[in-house]
Nucleic acid binder design. Structure first.
Length: 883
RNA sequence: GCCGAUGUGGCGAAAUGGCAGACGCAACGGACUUAAAAUCCGUUGGGCCGUAACAGGCCCGUGCCGGUUCGAGUCCGGCCAUCGGCACCA
């Protein structure tokens, strides 16, 4: 196999073209004001999710999305856009640090090596990135600005009046630290002993760490938090205008988890205090027969009676030991303990017992609930376990039993709201509660504030110091003190105590006589939260991004000239004619990245965090639009040949390098796209690669012959002659299909059409050079090396300007050439195909009907039957309906 | 349990409500070759009828059941299966 001759001599020219593209800086796009910037062109910002450069190198999943965006980037350039298509490295993170722990090698070295490997692999595939814009999150010139953004967040607060972030100086309250968007809290966190760090909720899956699958326990620690919850409402509402898959929007909405209801105050019997409970069903208030508070609730200490203390203490200790996994285990029975105290149900003034149970979570709502066993599954289960009373207060509208009915019905046994529908009842009782000072309308979110510190080495240090003795008062550094560079360390191991590894760098920690540095570092998400902004102006050392480049690349909302250009650009010479095809279906920019392609795994993590940061920076006037990514597309996962997820243990991993060695980079690219729809999950097939490589070889041999000496030369079949009618039709049908399919990201069918084209010219003795040129232009975004080489060969004999294929304008098709004089009409009887008919195109309905009924087969079939109706679709079919 | 996506030949897949299976893979047959590989040409959803052989014809078929329609892979309702997400969120 390995010694088999290559299907075509790609190994002789692929690296040549990659080198030439580099040398000629062909894909470098200048910023406004820079040399070579063309302001008459519209912009298009097309972005990939930048990778974490792991030691294992690229696998075939990465280049799937990258190939799709590269095709569009190349296509858009040919359509006359200024295309921003950058790549960089999300290089902070655990693996490099773990490697450092094992070997003592500094993570920066590992990172540099891995980046070099990834970069060379990407270059081998022939991606047209503007490498002058490469960024690396671990570069001090980059993370200086990550730290700067943290300072912006730290130095601002969310003003509920204006519904946006403002400088902290505009806050009039007593304690600004209590409202900062970045704040310190002693919170129960997800502590992972194995990794020696805390993790965000998003990084914990089923009570285990997402990375490594180690157990995670709850433990209170001093942590930096970002007040993302302040933006919950906007993060939901502003999803609306984005061109994202509905599923991803839904995932984010569910993650944020908005629910509307009421907070109700329950007076504690014999105490001058009350417990506030959140509920989405205030209409069931009369059914509340007990109260449950979370074990960690602050009022527990106050209300528990003498005789109940031992039981409560024991219960609290027991729940504290539980992992999240155990606590969330639904299959297990509910647990809880009576506090000894009672509260008053404000609706009916009844005394109800207060229980303590871990099915109530401290982190959601108020950490206390009113138990309504008749109309809530969990409360019902709890009530049955501990023999608490039930009260039915909602009458189901159907035949369901009232006990355990959780839907909306009619309120009953509830004097204030009897007879009302649940929706009406909710409104009325909430108004009643507000009126009597027993509660108020409230909205709650599942979304928690973002736990933003990590006890690690390989991350961005916080630009913060602690003054007045250890951990007393935090103070942000000045901008001019950035970047804060992490110290060199001998030993990167976690301390195991929760004290971050940076704590070992005694000299570094000491900031001044009375101040020490913060030793936590930022999570990996920090760098990826804004890299797409930095790409607009990556070399800027005075600002995180220049105002003009930001406005140009992220501004969106095309002005008149841009609109005109977008349309006008399609007007190019195409074969023998010019014709403008329909407008682009890729959306017009409304701000932000025009197209962002990446995996679904980032649906709620990266994409939510980045939106949050973007909005803060927008509010503070640093950015021109409120959303970072206008259009999002998720590529599907590529499975192994065995239809299983690719993994080392299954031994089904496909290495791009090997595929390229054997079949060429172009075949690799084309196969990745030919496999199926971009967004679909699909299995790899080496046979499939071979098939696509055969197609590319056919393109090669269409234009090249091998002479006696075994050298390839331009085939004498290629001649400067006109295409015949059917060839012209094929050319234009292909222009149309390929253009439309690229616009709709249907790359697989675009390739199919080009296969049809090539099949049509196989064994043709005299091939019109114009048709071949057209094929090369259309195929160029998919197979840039092959088409560049052939373009050059063809150009050597038949001169054409410009000499570089990547600078060719994209053609448009002539609809008139697609119309045949005659069309075949399908004739059906009662919807079943019975005959075919050739008629002149655009024949009238009468003509069609007459011709169809005159067909012997049809005439015969309808003899003796009544024709009830004849359906006629011009140029398509005739359907005769009989009885 | 809730939410979402998907379900079409031996396989990857195509199909503005209008000829189901384009294109590719695999398989089979043929040409070229001493032979093979490569290449080129052809056949290829299932069943039945038909013919000496072609030609030709009929029926069934897009997970299952029903509906709308002259006509449904496509639209509507209900199931089933697979995958993904969330999961005591009050």
């Amino acid at each position: 196999m390995s010694e088999r001759r290559k299907a075509y001599p790609f190994d002789r020219f692929e690296s040549k073209w990659q080198r030439l593209w580099d040398e000629r800086q062909l894909f470098h796009v200048p910023n406004p004001g820079e040399a070579g910037f063309d302001s008459t062109k519209p912009k298009f910002y097309i972005l990939d999710m930048f990778p974490y450069p792991s030691g294992a190198g690229l696998h075939v999943g990465h280049p799937e999305g990258y190939t799709a965006t590269d095709i569009i980037a190349r296509y858009k350039r040919m359509r006359g856009f200024n295309v921003l298509h950058p790549m960089g490295w999300d290089a902070f993170g655990l693996p490099a640090e773990q490697y450092a722990i094992k070997t003592g090698q500094h993570p920066a070295i590992t990172t540099r090596e891995n980046v070099a490997k990834f970069k060379s692999q990407l270059k081998r595939i022939g991606f047209s990135y503007d490498w002058t814009r490469e960024v690396n999150t671990t570069d001090p010139r980059y993370y200086k600005w990550t730290q700067w953004i943290f300072l912006q967040i730290y130095n601002s607060w969310f003003n509920p009046e204006t519904n946006k972030a403002e400088p902290i100086s505009s806050y009039r309250g007593a304690d600004p630290d209590s409202v900062r968007l970045a704040y310190v809290a002693e919170v129960p966190v997800n502590w992972c002993p194995e990794l020696g760090t805390v993790l965000a909720n998003e990084e914990v899956i089923d009570g285990r760490s997402e990375i490594g699958g180690h157990p995670v326990v709850k433990r209170p620690m001093r942590q930096w938090m970002l007040r993302i919850t302040a933006y919950a409402e906007r993060l939901i509402n502003e999803l609306e205008g984005l061109d994202w898959p509905q599923g991803i929007k839904l995932l984010q909405r569910n993650w944020i988890g908005r629910s509307e209801g009421a907070e109700i105050n329950f007076q504690i019997d014999n105490h001058d205090a009350h417990i506030t409970a959140f509920t989405t069903r205030p209409d069931t208030l009369y059914g509340g027969t007990f109260l449950v508070v979370a074990p960690e609730h602050s009022l527990v200490d106050l209300i528990v009676t003498e005789e109940q203390w031992p039981a409560v203490r024991e219960y609290r200790e027991r729940t504290a030991c539980k992992s999240d996994l155990e606590r969330a285990d639904l299959s297990k029975e509910k647990t809880g303990v009576f506090s000894g105290a009672y509260a008053i149900n404000p609706a009916n003034n009844e005394k109800i017992p207060i229980w303590i149970a871990d099915y109530v979570l401290l982190g959601y709502g108020t950490g206390a609930i009113g138990g309504v066993p008749a109309h809530d599954e969990r409360d019902l289960e709890f009530a049955r376990k501990f023999d608490l009373p039930l009260a039915v207060v909602v009458q189901p509208t159907g035949n369901e039993p009232a006990i355990g009915f959780t839907g909306d019905g009619i309120a009953m046994n509830s004097p204030i709201i009897n007879g009302l529908t649940s929706a009406e009842a909710r409104k009325k009782i909430t108004a009643w509660l507000e009126e009597h000072g027993h509660g108020k309308r409230a909205i709650n979110y599942k979304l928690r504030d973002w736990l933003f510190s990590r006890q690690r080495y390989w991350g961005e240090p916080f630009p913060v110091v602690w003054e007045d003795g250890q951990y007393r008062k935090h103070r942000a550094l000045n901008e001019n003190e950035l970047p804060v560079v992490p110290p060199e360390l001998e030993d990167y191991k976690p301390t195991g105590t929760g004290e971050p590894p940076l704590g070992k760098a005694k000299d570094w920690i000491r900031y001044s006589d009375k101040a020490t540095r913060e030793t936590n570092v930022m999570p990996q998400w920090a760098g990826s939260c804004w890299y797409y902004i930095r790409f607009c102006d990556p070399q800027n050392d005075r600002r995180f991004v220049g105002e003009e480049p930001e406005r140009y690349w992220m501004g969106g909302e095309n002005n008149e000239t841009r609109m005109m250009n977008d349309e006008g650009m399609t007007k190019h010479e195409a074969g023998n004619s010019s014709f403008v095809i329909g407008h682009s279906s890729l959306p017009r920019a409304r701000g932000g990245v025009d197209l962002y392609v990446g995996g679904t795994e980032h649906a709620v993590l990266h994409l939510l965090y980045a939106r949050f940061w973007h909005k803060v920076l927008f509010d503070l006037g640093h950015l021109s639009k409120p959303e970072p990514f206008q259009r999002l597309v998720n590529q599907g996962i590529i499975l192994g040949e065995d239809n299983q997820k690719m993994s080392k243990s299954r031994g089904n991993i496909v290495n791009p390098d090997e595929v390229i060695d054997e079949y060429s980079a172009d075949a690799f690219r084309c196969y990745e796209m030919f496999m199926g729809p971009l967004e679909q999950m699909k299995p790899w097939s080496m046979r499939g690669v071979e098939g696509v490589s055969r197609f590319l070889a056919r393109v090669w041999r269409l234009m090249m012959d091998e002479n006696q000496a075994g050298e390839w030369e331009l085939s004498p079949r290629i001649q400067d002659i006109a295409s015949d009618k059917s060839q012209l039709k094929l050319v234009h049908a292909t222009i149309k299909k390929v253009t439309e399919d690229i616009e709709s990201l249907s790359f697989n069918t675009a390739i199919s059409q080009m296969m049809v084209f090539v099949n049509g010219f196989t064994n043709v003795e005299r091939i019109p050079v114009t048709a071949m040129r057209m094929l090369l232009v259309l195929l160029n975004p998919f197979a840039p090396h092959l088409t560049s080489e052939l373009w050059e060969k063809v150009g050597a004999k038949f001169r054409v300007e410009p000499a570089e294929i990547t600078q060719q304008p994209w053609p448009s098709h002539d609809e008139a050439l697609l119309v045949e004089a005659e069309v075949e009409i399908v004739v059906q009887i009662n919807g079943k195909l019975r005959a075919r008919l050739k008629v002149a195109t655009d024949a009238s309905e009468e003509t069609l009907k007459a011709a169809a009924l005159a067909l012997p087969k049809i005439a015969e079939a309808i003899t003796g039957k009544e024709i009830r109706k004849v359906v006629i679709v011009p140029n398509k079919l005739v359907n005769v309906v009989t009885n």
